[in-house]
C-alpha cells in the first residue's frame, strides 16, 4: 500500500511544481514529474509478489508472471509524453525569443 501512497505524493509534487513555479522550464519539468508518477502507478498495478518478467524463454513454464499489459501501455504513454515535452520545450524556446524571459508572470500580453 505504501508504494501507491508514495506514487500519489509524487503526483502531487509534480502538480505543485506546475502550479506554483514561475520559470517555464520548471513548469515543463513539473509536467514530466506528473507524467512519470502516473506511469509508475501503472507499472505498480501489474506487479505481483515474487513474479518474474513476462518474457517467454525456452525452458520456463508460463506461471507467476507480472501483468505485461500495463508495461505495454506505459510504453505508449511514454511516447506520448515525449511528444508533448518536445512540443512544449519548442514553444518555450520560441517564447524566450519573443519575450526575452522565462518568468511566467512577465509573459502576460493576453488579458481579459
Amino acid at each position: 500500500m505504501i508504494e501507491y501512497i508514495l506514487c500519489f505524493i509524487l503526483f502531487c509534487i509534480g502538480l505543485y511544481c506546475v502550479l506554483r513555479k514561475r520559470n517555464i522550464i520548471k513548469i515543463v519539468i513539473g509536467l514530466g514529474i506528473v507524467e512519470y508518477a502516473v506511469n509508475l502507478f501503472f507499472v505498480l498495478i501489474g506487479f505481483r509478489m515474487h513474479g518474474r518478467a513476462p518474457i517467454l524463454a525456452k525452458d520456463q513454464t508460463i506461471s507467476n508472471m507480472v501483468d505485461p499489459l500495463p508495461q505495454a501501455l506505459v510504453l505508449t504513454s511514454i511516447v506520448i509524453g515525449l511528444a508533448v515535452t518536445a512540443l512544449i520545450v519548442a514553444i518555450a524556446i520560441r517564447l524566450y525569443e519573443k519575450y526575452g524571459t522565462f518568468d511566467i508572470t512577465k509573459i502576460r500580453r493576453l488579458r481579459g
Binding site: 509536467l31 520560441r94 519573443k98
Partner: peptide, 9 residues
Amino acid sequence: LEASFKYAV
C-alpha cells in the same frame, strides 16, 4: 505562443 503554452500545460 503564450496562448499555446497555457493550453498545452
